[in-house]
Design a protein around this nucleic acid. Structure first.
Lengths: 301, 301
DNA sequence: AGAGGTTACGGGCAGCGTAAGGATC
DNA sequence: GATCCTTACGCTGCCCGTAACCTCT
């Protein structure tokens, strides 16, 4: 008989397009995945997967046929677990990728709530900039990404968290002319923001490019480092307003009043849709709830 | 996660109403079944089965709920196997209960065909009279019964094999008066037939009772023994015509011409309907085909 | 005493992880 | 050389079967 585990592994190999990725996603090793697939192929006496050297692998006809059943089986299994336990079993390991901004605002609250309400969930948090998180998610290295912007791929579910504008902030004593500050005033100073691939960087660059201004950018992937440097008077920072709300409130940073039209950025909780995402969905929903909670709004506003 | 095997075991415990029966049906031991159920109950943190001392056990509410999923899961699994292999995997152990009459007519042909076409099937044949076979089937001790008459229980599938009349046969020299022989002529002699619980016995008894005749019956559960004794002139045998066709053809026995209205008896291939009966169904169908084959008809006619 | 389920215990084997081995770009 | 899958191998843990035990009729 065909094991549930084998189908699960087969499903993720097909889904993520590689043995390695499936292994990472399922928290196991590549040989284990390999053995399962081989066993499956041996049992069904048919090759299921065309091993090509480049991502993604392709399924044979038989493989595609099996995938349908694998998906149905996983779905039935999780439906059963949900029905039997009243609610799905919220336990296991979840790997979350989080953008720095979220780490500094409401991630602690999410972690606290999870530890309190679901002590059997083990979290593995990786912090990185959103473009990297997108890669990690689509290669199966993380299960859930809390970051900027939706991922526009099929089968990825994006739960919008909250939208925030980009604020220009400086050290209180830092000299900036103009009220409101114009773009050219800002461009005279070094601008600190996230790394080149991120939305804040690109949005800043696009308005500057439109105005034909040149500028010294200080891209930096660490939010706390950017904040530190800004407080130390290195330049003007362009950061999500929520990320610096505390420092602005405490007077460590001063928010510039400008009329520069920077489009706001939207955070999302994104994850790959699969038959067994009850756990991840729950966490994403909880994240949305916490991110939008009045308490949080007040705390960071 | 819940194993396929656990669901299968749970299904059969529920279906057959006991741990022991399920163990027999699944070719395993009672402790193994017990352990699986215990593990399942532990995993779902709920009692699934009320252990009562008498058959059948009853399911708790949770147990009944799980049974639905177990059945769906088994069904999906066998649907998948069927779809993937083109045809279901015809291999494994099948326990067949066979009535003596069939053993002496076309069972060898069935066994030969199975051994030839499906060498991976292991047969375990038990021979007994039909009422006993019915018990064995409903308690899960056999998977398929080839015997007299349908089993009128829900979830039992009966495939009609062929109908045969009951013949009165005697040794060639045995003195019987009358042509055609009347019932009272027969009642003067000892009558050999199957044991008390069987259809031939009961049918003979009912016509005799209707005529208010008393008679000496020699019930015997072994067909070959009955034939032997009849050839030796012990009395008149009432047996399915097909069972003595060979002896009549070879002249070892003589068939009496009578006008006694004995209702014919019907053989069936009967088995319990379950989500995974592809193998048993195939054998039952093959049995029907062989039993009704012209070659067989000729051979026994 | 017998039927039916549980507990105890030892052995076998499946499946996993580590590490080394191709193959292809 | 880098990436990706496969093979080799030792180990762990699960699951099964045997046997003894419990409990109710």
């Amino acid at each position: 008989m065909i094991d549930y585990r084998s189908l699960e592994i087969f499903y993720w190999v097909a889904r993520l397009g590689g043995f390695r990725r499936a292994a990472v996603r399922l928290c196991t090793t590549q040989p284990a995945v390999s053995a399962r697939i081989l066993q499956l192929e041996h049992m069904l006496k048919a090759r299921l997967i065309e091993r090509e050297r480049r991502h993604p692998i392709t399924l044979t006809r038989k493989g595609a046929e099996l995938l349908i059943y694998a998906e149905r089986m996983l779905r039935l299994q999780s439906e059963m677990m949900a029905a039997m336990n009243g609610s799905p079993v919220y336990e296991g390991i979840v790997r979350i990728g989080v953008a720095d901004t979220i780490v500094h605002t409401w991630l602690p609250e999410l972690v606290r709530r999870l530890r309190m309400d679901y002590p059997n969930i083990t979290l593995e948090v990786s912090v990185d900039v959103s473009p990297v998180l997108k890669e990690l998610l689509s290669s199966g290295d993380i299960d859930l990404a809390l970051m900027v912007g939706p991922i526009d791929l099929p089968k990825v579910r994006n739960i919008p968290l909250r939208t925030t504008e980009i604020a220009w902030v400086v050290a209180p004593e830092y000299p900036v002319s103009g009220t409101p500050v114009r773009l050219s005033d800002i461009a005279a100073h070094p601008i600190l923001t996230f790394s080149r691939t991120t939305e804040p960087y690109q949005k800043v660059m696009s308005v500057l490019a439109a105005s034909d201004l040149s500028v010294r950018m200080f891209p930096n992937s660490s939010l706390s480092s950017i904040i530190r440097m800004t407080i130390d008077g290195v330049g003007i920072a362009a950061l999500p307003a929520v990320a610096v709300a505390r420092e602005v409130a405490s007077g460590q940073l001063r928010r510039l009043e400008t009329d520069i039209a920077l489009p706001p950025i939207t955070f999302t909780a994104s994850f790959i849709e699969a038959p067994d995402t009850a756990l991840v969905t729950m966490i994403a929903t909880l994240a949305a709830e916490i991110a939008d909670a009045p308490a949080m709004q007040a705390k960071v506003a």
